[in-house]
């Protein structure tokens, strides 16, 4: 193949390059531009200094995001292990079953939990018939975290499941043969081999959890405003685009830092772990 043809083929990427430049890169520059200007377009640092009033929702978002991610990991890891070790037919059915809720409208899923958790909702009605309760569940921080876990759990299960199916099962057998007990096999063999799936699962749950809005509005009753809710408010209610941009900018940087720490942790561990 000659150079001219190779060049022509590379040219196929140009619509995408132009498109991404205009609709991915320029919008991010816009966020920065709006964050450091005021309504008239003049330079200001007011938006940045005003951020200090919102430390609490930032910290709350981080905290809820971390808790939801850990719960998802604890639920998903054994499940992925069980699915990956079952028959091929069962595996594909299970994967579909895990995926279906992901494609259900996220608003309706969250709304459904609202009707389930309400004081006079489905769960309390059923419990009342047995003679227990009623429990107050809606409008608590637990309900918000439950909403996050429910909505993003499949994003944790699927990547972990994928690496588990690719894992060389002979290594597990070898460890057993060499006298390791079940716990040690999981800690020293299975876990290091599935680390990449765990890391992508964590990112796929943590990023939407930290930046979510709506969940806390519906399940938290407005008393647990997260950073996503405050950004939404700036754009849809108070029409303060400049401050909204500053909040988005910080959210983006915060998540980038978290992911960099995560990846570093992953790489460092990999270097010391089993060479794959």
């Amino acid at each position: 193949m000659n150079k001219k043809q190779a060049f022509k083929q590379k040219l196929c990427a140009s619509p995408h390059i132009v498109w991404s430049a205009i609709f991915v890169v320029v919008p991010l520059i816009m966020v920065l531009y709006y964050a450091i200007t005021d309504r008239t377009g003049a330079f200001t640092t007011d938006n940045i200094t005003r951020l200090s009033d919102y430390v609490t929702p930032f910290l709350r978002s981080l905290w809820f995001g971390i808790v939801a991610t850990i719960i998802c990991l604890i639920i998903a890891y054994p499940l992925a292990y069980i699915i990956a070790h079952s028959k091929a037919k069962v595996q594909s059915t299970m994967v579909i079953l895990v995926m279906i809720p992901m494609w259900m409208n996220f608003l309706l899923r969250t709304y459904a939990w609202m009707t389930l958790l309400e004081d006079s909702g489905v769960i309390n009605t059923i419990l009342g018939k047995i003679g227990i309760g009623p429990f107050h569940m809606i409008n608590t921080s637990g309900a918000v975290i439950l909403g996050m876990v429910y909505n993003f759990l499949p994003y944790m299960i699927l990547p972990i499941y994928t690496v588990m199916t690719k894992m060389d099962k002979n290594l597990v057998e070898a460890a057993h043969d060499l006298g390791a007990n079940k716990f040690r096999v999981i800690k020293d063999v299975v876990f290091p081999l599935t680390r990449s799936g765990v890391i992508s699962g964590i990112t796929m749950v943590f990023v939407p959890s930290v930046s979510t809005f709506y969940i806390s509005q519906k399940l938290g009753g407005g008393s647990f405003a997260l950073i996503g809710d405050i950004i939404e408010m700036q754009f849809q209610v108070s029409n303060n685009f400049n401050f909204g941009a500053a909040l988005s900018l910080v959210l983006m940087i915060l998540i980038l830092i978290c992911m960099a720490v995560m990846n570093r942790f992953g790489d460092a561990e990999k270097a010391g772990g089993v060479g794959v």
Binding site: A21, P27, Y34, V207
Partner: peptide, 27 residues
């Protein structure tokens, strides 16, 4: 660098993607 830019919409929080595009359109 093309691949990194390509991945931005997947990695960025959806709310930031939405907000950034809205700002571009409004601008």
């Amino acid at each position: 660098s093309i691949m990194s830019v390509t991945n931005i919409p997947m990695m960025n929080p959806e709310i930031v993607t939405g907000v950034s595009m809205m700002l571009l359109f409004v601008f």
